[in-house]
C-alpha cells in the first residue's frame, strides 16, 4: 500500500514537473515572441521615419508616399503598446525594468507617440509643409524621450 502510494506520488510529481516545464517553456517562448514582434514593429517605425527624412530635407515632395509611411508608424505604435507584458526583457532585448516600474509614464509616451504620428499623417494628407516638419520633429522627440528612459544603452 505504502509502496503504491510512493509510486503514485512519484508519478504525480513527474506529471506536475512536466506540466510546469511546459508552462515555463511556453511562457518563455511567448515572451521571446512578443520581444521579437515588438522589435519588428519598432524597426519598421524607424524605417518609416528614415523614409520621411528626404521629405523633411525637401528632396522629395510631400504627398501620398509620406502619408503611407506616417500611417504605418501610427498603426505600429498602436500595436506595439500591448507587447510589453510585465518583465518581458531578455539579453536580446533592450527593454529596461523602468518600463514596468514607471509604467504610467511609459504608456503616456505611447499616447504621445500615437498623437504625434497622427499629426504627421494629417499634415501629409493636407500637404502642409510647415505642419509636417513641426509634427515630425515632435514625433522624433517622443521617440527620443522614451528611449532615454526606457531603453538600455546600445552596444
Amino acid at each position: 500500500m505504502l509502496r503504491y502510494a510512493h509510486r503514485h506520488l512519484a508519478k504525480t510529481t513527474a506529471l506536475l514537473g512536466f506540466l510546469a516545464a511546459v508552462a515555463c517553456g511556453s511562457m518563455a517562448y511567448a515572451q521571446a515572441d512578443v520581444i521579437a514582434e515588438r522589435q519588428k514593429l519598432m524597426k519598421e517605425i524607424g524605417d518609416g521615419m528614415k523614409a520621411l527624412a528626404p521629405v523633411f530635407k525637401g528632396t522629395e515632395a510631400l504627398g501620398e508616399k509620406a502619408e503611407a509611411s506616417a500611417k504605418l508608424i501610427e498603426a505600429n505604435f498602436s500595436k506595439a503598446r500591448d507587447l510589453f507584458p510585465a518583465g518581458s526583457t531578455s539579453k536580446d532585448s533592450d527593454a529596461l525594468e523602468t518600463i514596468w516600474s514607471e509604467n504610467a509614464g511609459f504608456l503616456t509616451g505611447f499616447d504621445k507617440a500615437e498623437e504625434s504620428a497622427a499629426a504627421v499623417v494629417e499634415a501629409s494628407a493636407r500637404k502642409e509643409d510647415a505642419d509636417f516638419k513641426a509634427a515630425l520633429a515632435k514625433l522624433g522627440q517622443t521617440c527620443k524621450s522614451c528611449h532615454e528612459k526606457y531603453r538600455k544603452p546600445s552596444n
Binding site: M42, K50, F56, L136, G140, K144, H147
Partner: peptide, 9 residues
C-alpha cells in the same frame, strides 16, 4: 536630426 530621421541609437 537624431530620432526624427529614425536614428534611434
Amino acid at each position: 536630426y537624431g530620432e526624427m530621421f529614425g536614428y534611434d541609437g
